[in-house]
């Protein structure tokens, strides 16, 4: 059993209303040290079999075509978490 994690973030040039709202909330709560917040998404894909290169290529494709709206978002990272919970970034 392994977990493939896909991280998606709004593109840098695009407005991120959620991030803006969090930034303002943090400032209101007195956490002035935080300058800017951007909010993305993390997808956890449970895989039953082995994580092969072919599977990762497929996940990469799914990430670009389904998980992320690449008009306004970027897939910033795809990595595998194995049973021993050791993360390995690809």
């Amino acid at each position: 059993m392994a977990l493939i994690v896909v991280d998606v973030m709004p593109k840098a040039e695009i407005l991120d209303p959620q991030g803006k709202a969090v930034t303002r909330a943090l400032a209101r709560l007195g956490h002035g040290a935080v300058g800017d917040v951007r909010v993305g998404k993390r997808f956890e894909l449970q895989v039953d079999g082995p994580v092969t290169d072919a599977l990762l290529a497929e996940v990469r494709e799914v990430a670009d075509e389904v998980l992320a709206n690449t008009v306004i978002e970027d897939v910033v990272d795809i990595h595998v978490v194995d049973e021993a919970a050791q993360e390995s970034s690809l």
Binding site: P10, K11, E13, I14, L15, D16, P17, K20, A21, V71, I72
Partner: peptide, 10 residues
Amino acid sequence: RPAVQVGDPF
């Protein structure tokens, strides 16, 4: 296609 705009209704 260039970047589209994202709106914030609030």
